[in-house]
Design a protein around this nucleic acid. Sequence first.
RNA 1: GGUCACUUAGCUCAGUUGGUUAGAGCGUCUGCUUUACACGCAGAAGGUCGCUGGUUCAAAUCCAGCAGUGACCACCA
Length: 897
Amino acid sequence: MKELAKTYNPKDTENAIYQKWEASGFFNPDNLEKASDRFWNAEVFSIAMPPPNITAVLHLGSALFLTIEDIMTRYARMSGKKTLWLPGTDHAAIATNSVVERQIWEQEKKSLHDIGREEFLRRVEEFISQTRGRIQVQIRAMGSSCDWSREKYTFSPELSVAVRTIFKKFYDAGLIYRGERIVNWCPHDGTTLADDEVEYRPTQGQLYYIRYHLTQGKGVLTVATTRPETMLGDTALAVHPQDPRYKQYVGQHVMLPIVNRELPVVADEEVDREFGSGVLKVTPGHDPHDFEIGKRHNLETINLFTPEGKINEQEAYDHGFEEFANLTAPEARAKIVQALTEAGFLEKTESLTHNVGVCYRCENIVEPIVSKQWFVDVNKKIKLNRDKFQSLLKLPAEASLREIGTASVKSGAIKIIPERFGKIYLQWMDNLHDWNISRQIWFGHRIPVWYCDNCGETIVAVDAPQTCSSCGKNQLTQDPDTLDTWFSSSLWTFSTLGWPKETVDLMTYHPTTILETGYDILFFWVARMILMTGFALEDIPFHTVYLHGLVRDLKGKKMSKSKGNVVNPLDMIEKYGTDALRLSLILGTTPGNDSKTSETKIQNYRNFVNKLWNISRFILSSSSDEKTWPGPAAPDPQTLADQWILSQLDILTAKVRSSLDAYQYSLAGELLETFTWTDLADWYVEVSKVEKGKGTILKYLLGELLKLWHPFIPFVTEQLWSQFSPEFLMIQPYPQAQTAKNTKELGEKFLKLQQLISGLRNLRAEYHQPPAPIFASYLELLPQFEWLKEQTALIEKLARVKLNLEAVDATKKMPYFLWENQRVYLIMPNFDPDKELMLAEKELKITEILRKKFAAQLNKKDFASKAPAEVVATLQRNFAEAEERAKKLKTKLESLR
RNA sequence: GGUCACUUAGCUCAGUUGGUUAGAGCGUCUGCUUUACACGCAGAAGGUCGCUGGUUCAAAUCCAGCAGUGACCACCA
């Protein structure tokens, strides 16, 4: 066996270990059966990895999800489940599109139109071929035990078939339609966005009050607006039907200032009487509400802006505002405001903070425009064919996508962790509108719809048709739009398993066991997966959703390059090792809550990993016997310490398992950390230096501990395990707690021993004695502490005393402390009565507070009768002890004064 | 406006059905080349659990109100 280095150096081992794991084939569940028969007919565990963007670089958020999912996966695998963690990447249509577009602009000063669609897509492929693989390397660096043989990519030919297939299925069921709607338009990215892809930012703006004069008579209606330029597209004014101020004007007409176009005044419930003047200018082409009002009152829609965000020239000529043609919105606004002011139409302005919608990707202001787009209808009822699904979700024979989405969670079929996100999910489902799925960017899944140039027929097909199904001509043009990225990623749990083919994988691993992802994409992704799977398979995509929080910096800020607060996980791996990084992301965090991290935290866990390394180094080098693992059965304990540590391990095993089963990874890690550092290293390893012949027990403890730790810190544990076993740690059975053990009494005895040793150490430290000298100590042996006799050697060595289990002549003044209400003397030079006095007073103060507290509680009315007997008994005992202790401390004080 | 969180030691956070003296790590202070580890060892200090009420024999924990912080959703003419 090689000597282990004094400090653990992750760089020397991590890559090699990962390669061994990968070569072993055990990431692939098909191979597990060959490794051990305990995987035969085993329960299945599957996770679909949330696919990172193909262009992505690993950040702490991805490091976090990779760690959590790897813990889940490794724990399941070691527990004997047939475990699949399926990795992959997302083509990230908009993100990739804009990265490449920007690159081309920066390098060649060419726009998309300069280079054309085909050439652009070629460039995207070229770009991806360069970046592809980078993210895979980084996923490996995190130690992720995912099955690379099943790796998928949302834009691969197979997954594209799944996308087109489901599009057609939706279309045939009448759930996908094309319609003219008001949609969110990002002039920067040149595409529409789904409602939840628009973010709202509070913005300081002006509220302009504009006068509209009646065409008949003398009245004036004043309208308040933040977007005066949109008045060019006004086709009516609206008031609330019950508003007494304006009732009389309904049905009359006003003159649109500057443009001089006649507009009707209509009554509509939608108008908020409280806002501004209570009169609303209706611009159906530029506001979702106005669009609806326009439909209700048959108003004309003026398409005010071009896709580039400029005033539409054609509409300007058609509707009499050609002087504004081709101006951008801000230019138009300035010109309008000036014209209004000069002509006396502007009554006043007020400043106002309002929310402005911006694109979630590029943060540019989103313009609502009217456009012909593809939508998924979320409210149309479809017939459900699978009884099992219907009864699982407690749904009637017909249900809409929205109802499926709601029922999936409400019925308990899908469990969301933490629970509070279930409510948020349901609220979102309640507000769900039809989903705009068409995008005007070039990179992405092309909408599988063709139009016949001859007869205008619309053909929806999985594979490109050669001829028109209606007229038979072969002049067909495909719809130019592409699909929303989330459309393809919402198929992820089943498209990755071979759907639409009925594969063995699909039957084996779907529905997946758990979906682990960030709460920030609950709507974008999780909700849509539920809708898509509900329709396509009439099934749920997963049984459980585990949501993690965002990783922030120490000040709680989101990490971003511009803020300069980014912690790069690859740098951290380089400096401290993957295991340390993993621990820093898991410990001290809870599901669904944001966590803060810092380099110091990672450094601390590097220290811990090194501690584990050194414990192992001690264990493996201190025993001269064979460096083999003694096997899974616990060795027989010889001493109190043996009994104690073995029972502690047992308790630990049970708690770690139950924590992992409850997704409490932080708790499990903390339990392991305390056991490793405090119980094992600080106590038992020290004990083993006194009580010899513990080689077998130590190795057993180490072996079990490495197994328990493995899902958290796979590299260092595998490396250490390889020191005494030729097998892989990653497929060892996860430890089971032995049940029938009388652990409580053992625990208490050893705890008393620890208190005695700590008491001695404490007294010594209070007297500022160097740790080296050995002092005599006296403790009268009472019958109930007979067992102390056997522990003398331990006490003497660990507290550095010569222990005399006999009474001492107490007439001489010497330092003592109370242990189990017994005096324990420590004979040190320089007895200091003042110091003793101070120590005793301090302790008495604490004891008195306790004593009074216990007494008060005991004397409370109804306590004895209402509290459980056990609680009462414990309290009585504690009170008696505190009283006794206080009495003894008082005696001590008197003797010192 | 609606919903949901959070507020515990100087800092970062645990605290799982209410029950002995509220925990951990870092940081701070004291002392240590104790032969696995200074990425270490021993010891110590530090908290009226945001505030005010209520329920209960018993509240950090349950309820109500208030204050502060944050998130999400809707609206924002």
